[in-house]
Amino acid sequence: MKEVIIVKIGMADLNVASGGDSLKTTGLGSCVGLTLHDANIGIAGMAHIMLPSSDIAREGQLNIAKYADTAVPELLSRLKAGGANVRRLVAKLAGGAQMFAFASGSDSMRIGPRNVESTKLALAAYDIPVIAEDTGGNFGRTIEFSSASGILTIRSVQNGVKEI
């Protein structure tokens, strides 16, 4: 039996995996872990999205994996290059937590929910359905996604392990 390779996704990073391999990202707080899966050919993609929109970028060299609006098209083109059909893709989301609660809800404090909203908006532009999500709350998550099964495994300190 082939050994399953786990591809690590860093913060503001994205990648694809197939042939039964898995994708993993650790310590999602307000960041959103987006996964896309084409079950027909067993290809999966994952992005660790940090910020809602590249409109607010002030960096010279844009890291397109960092923003919801740029990470989604990039992940799609990587999946397409791997043979995926956009019409078959389904999305799952995790993360987007609000790690600390403050009375004064300034905008940067709501970054988690805004990341989730923007990611959904970017997916809707390509008619990709979000079939499951584990978002919000005030806790961190580590996620692993199997290209074979399309199952997203979510681990958190308080709630243990959960599959969606």
Partner: peptide, 26 residues
């Protein structure tokens, strides 16, 4: 400000403090 406390994964906690830097680079 009034302090907030969390017991959680270091990555999830610290990433929260980096959002302002996120718009400028990695």
């Amino acid at each position: 400000t009034v302090p907030a406390i969390a017991v959680d994964m270091a990555g999830a906690i610290l990433s929260y403090g980096l959002v302002q830097f996120g718009t400028m680079g990695d």
